[in-house]
Amino acid sequence: MMMRRQPLAAGVLGPTDRAVLNRLQDGFPLDDQPFATVGAELGLTEQEVIDTVMRLRDLGAITRFGPFLDAAAMGGAFCLCAMAVPEERFEEVVTLVNAHDAVAHNYQRDHALNMWFVLACDRPERITAEADAIEAETGLAVLRFPKLREFFIGFRVTA
C-alpha cells in the first residue's frame, strides 16, 4: 500500500482516534487481552479500541502497529546510506535499491546526494555486503554513514 503523504482533512480524526493514536505510541501491553487493557485506561471497550486501530490504519494515520526492532540489540546493525543518482536514472535505481529486503526506508531528498536509505541487517557483516551489492547493481557509489552515537529517539507526535 502506498503511504499517504497528504494531511487528513480537519475533523477526520475524532477524539477517540486521537486518544488511541497517542496512547499506542507509548507502547502496547503484553497481556492476554491488551486491547481491553488499553480500553480500560481510555474509557473505551476492547472492540472500540480494535475498530479504532483498523480505522487509523485504513485512513493512513498510522503506518504500522507492532514490535519496533533494534538491529543493534539483535547483534545486527543499521546504516544510513546515500547516493547521488542521475535524474534520468532515478526510477530505475529506486527499483534496484528497494528490491533489497535490507532497505528499511528510502527517501528522495533535494540535494546532490538525492537518495537516502537505511540498511537494517540482523548480521553486521551484511551491511557491507548489501551496500556493495547495490553499488555493483547500480554502478553508483553508496556512501555509508553508520551511527557513531545516538542521542535520542523520541519519535512520537501528539495527534
Binding site: 507509548d26 502496547f28 487509523l56 503506518t63 519496533f68 529517539i153 512520537r156 507526535v157 495527534a159
Partner: peptide, 26 residues
C-alpha cells in the same frame, strides 16, 4: 508473551506500538 517480554527487556524490541504517519497528521 514471555519471549516478547524478554526481547523487550534486552532491547531487541524497542517497544510494541503504532508508527504514526507524520504526513497524515499534518
Amino acid at each position: 508473551t514471555r519471549r516478547l517480554s524478554a526481547m523487550q527487556e534486552t532491547g531487541v524490541i524497542r517497544r510494541i506500538a503504532v508508527a504514526p504517519n507524520h504526513y497524515a497528521l499534518g
